[in-house]
């Protein structure tokens, strides 16, 4: 019996560039941050405060990476323009983004 190999050596070393760092923090989200790109002033506070650091810089606004966003609502709370609302997942389009 040999284990499936996630780790190359004996120690639990994981490479930040490899899949090993993938932690599924998005699948159990119940509220989804929805960004109003028009209202966003591109200040970056949401990205700064997001605990999973999943806000993607889109050039003129930010959007959450829903693979990782856990729906905590910190971004909506911090946004100075109220540009983010937290919408129940059940009311969202099942598709990502």
């Amino acid at each position: 019996m040999a284990p499936h190999t996630y780790f190359q050596g004996e120690g639990p070393w994981s490479d930040a560039d490899q899949l090993m760092l993938y932690l599924d923090t998005g699948s159990w989200r119940s509220l989804r941050p929805v960004v109003d790109a028009e209202a966003c002033i591109y200040c970056g506070l949401c990205a700064l405060f997001c605990p999973t650091q999943c806000m993607i810089n889109k050039g003129e606004y930010f959007l959450p990476n829903l693979e990782f966003c856990k729906g905590c609502g910190v971004c909506a709370k911090e946004c100075p323009r109220g540009a983010i609302i937290m919408k129940p997942e059940g009311e969202c389009d099942a598709s990502k983004e």
Binding site: P3, F7, P12, W13, S14, D15, M20, L23
Partner: peptide, 20 residues
């Protein structure tokens, strides 16, 4: 050269490390 060590042993990863 940032690396994790002991930071990502969830589920089967944990099982593998314990087995080793």
């Amino acid at each position: 050269q940032p690396l994790g060590c002991g930071t990502h042993g969830i589920l089967q990863g944990f099982v593998e490390l314990r087995y080793k």
